[in-house]
């Protein structure tokens, strides 16, 4: 393999002082003081993500009020970090629905927000929500259970501790 020797920059006296470069940098900073602000006071202030933003996964409720999920376990098996745990349950009225998840848990600490679960789901019961925040003081509190996954947790006020 050929070795390439990078030429050393030929610095003059003014360059060695660094002062012109610092001044140039400060000029850029000062210019921004008079422009429109883009930073938010997180977590008090939240950015409303565009509708198609793909954050952490959530479950969807069908029109009849039951969760859409039929506990097929495809998302569980496809999930690369094994974040999903499902227990199958039977729905009380077989004429409405035969099968629902008795328990559905996503360990958000493990989820890598890859979206594979959404893609695998044959009944569109799981989708990526607008949430990207998942900070917490304990690992257990970010193991989201079925009831929470069915709610809109994207605008949760406080972080879960």
């Amino acid at each position: 393999m050929a070795i390439k020797i990078a030429p050393r920059p030929n610095l003059k006296f003014w360059d060695y002082l660094y002062l012109p470069a610092i001044m140039r940098g400060l000029l850029i900073t000062f210019k921004h003081i008079f422009r429109r602000k883009v930073t938010l006071q997180f977590p008090e202030q939240r950015w409303i993500f565009p509708f198609r933003y793909r954050g952490y996964p959530e479950l969807i409720t069908a029109e009849n009020g039951i969760e859409k999920c039929v506990a097929c376990k495809l998302c569980e098996v496809v999930c690369p970090p094994d974040a999903i745990t499902i227990k199958i349950g039977e729905y009380a009225n077989v004429n409405v629905r035969e099968r629902v998840p008795a328990e559905f848990e996503i360990d958000m600490g493990r989820c890598i927000v890859c979206g594979m679960c959404e893609e695998a789901c044959p009944v569109d019961a799981i989708r990526m929500s607008n949430t990207h925040v998942m900070s917490s003081g304990s690992r257990d509190s970010i193991k989201f259970k079925k009831t929470l996954l069915l709610e809109d947790y994207s605008q949760m006020e406080t972080m879960r501790l």
């Binding site: 039929v70 506990a71 097929c72 495809l74 035969e98 099968r99 044959p122 009944v123």
Partner: peptide
């Protein structure tokens, strides 16, 4: 039917 997701044979 499109039952595969919740069919025991699936």
């Amino acid at each position: 039917p499109l039952d595969c997701p919740f069919c025991d044979k699936g």
